[in-house]
């Protein structure tokens, strides 16, 4: 008898290498799509930014003598959101040019497509994490299908990516259109306030590395704003800069919370459509 597959293994496999989670789940088409899409975007980003995505944080285990320390120093788990694509990040982390005097000097010089490169590596890794979550759902779904002898559909991955790209779109696709407008409108308003108070300067990855990692929870907003305003120069004092950066980051983090809800709601809807559960008017779930 074939051993039952574990959903968390699909999630970890997907984070280790784009598409590996879907391969584990048995969906070769999605595996190939995820691998090609994420790998091309990520590699292009590394090339455009000339490995600068690794220049903002240091590995806490660098220089360690212990066996575990040496192993951990080879893994760039301090890079966020690149940790969502840990395998390819590790590959490029270990391929990067050595940080000698000449390299340190070059890192201080501006690079024409640095901003675009950093956006590509960051957002493709965040996207990869969502695709890994989709693979996790596929395994859980197939296990339940086999157990109950019923076909289960569902669009967990699609809804997650949609909600990440456009706030509220996940709820819209789930048929909750009024909630979608409220959630999307609120998050976009927070985002707009953040841009306004930071005078459009609060979304520059090379200057605001950790803040940008939080902002990337709103993928579409981060993509558009980073490309449009990331290259802007700070030429004057911005009195409400801290407030603006915080609002942008809070919007990104709240959208992450919304994404966890979209996963659960998509799952519930799929099980409901398959007739495996019933949801009462007050939202109570019954098997």
């Amino acid at each position: 008898m074939e051993a039952e597959k574990r959903p968390y293994r699909a999630l970890l496999a997907g984070m280790l290498l784009p598409g590996l989670g879907h391969l584990y789940a048995g969906d070769k088409r999605r595996a190939l799509t995820a691998f090609v899409l994420v790998t091309i975007l990520f590699a292009m980003g590394v090339w455009l930014a000339d490995y600068r995505l690794f220049a903002f944080t240091g590995n806490p285990f660098a220089g360690s003598d212990s066996f575990l320390g040496v192993i951990l120093s080879k893994l760039p788990f301090q890079c966020w959101p690149e940790v969502g694509n840990l395998g390819e990040s590790t590959l490029f982390w270990n391929l990067q040019p050595p940080l000698d005097g000449e390299r340190s000097r070059l890192l201080r010089l501006p690079l024409e497509y640095e901003n675009l490169g950093l956006v590509l590596t960051g957002l493709s890794s965040a996207l990869n994490f969502l695709l890994a979550a989709d693979a996790c759902w596929l395994v859980a779904r197939d296990n339940l299908s086999a157990e109950r002898g019923r076909e289960i559909g569902g669009h967990v991955g699609r809804n997650l990516v949609a909600a990440w790209l456009v706030p509220g779109l996940g709820h819209w696709l789930l048929g909750k259109k009024q909630t979608a407008l409220l959630v999307g409108g609120s998050l976009l308003a927070l985002w707009a306030l953040g841009l306004y108070f930071s005078e459009f300067l609060g979304i520059d990855r090379s200057q605001l590395y950790w803040w940008w990692a939080a902002q990337s929870g709103m993928g579409g907003g981060t993509l558009v704003s980073s490309l449009a305003f990331g290259p802007l120069q700070v030429t004057h004092d911005v009195p409400q800069m801290d407030l603006g950066i915080t609002l942008l980051s809070v919007a990104g983090l709240i959208n992450l919370a919304v994404l966890t809800d979209i996963y659960t709601q998509s799952e519930t809807q799929a099980l409901q459509d398959a007739g495996l559960i019933e949801v009462s008017a007050d939202g109570e779930v019954q098997a």
């Binding site: 909630t179 409220l182 959630v183 609120s186 809070v250 919370a257 919304v258």
Partner: peptide, 11 residues
């Protein structure tokens, strides 16, 4: 800001 954030979070 509290209201906007709460609407999204408590969805």
């Amino acid at each position: 800001v509290g209201y906007l954030g709460s609407v999204a979070f408590y969805s």
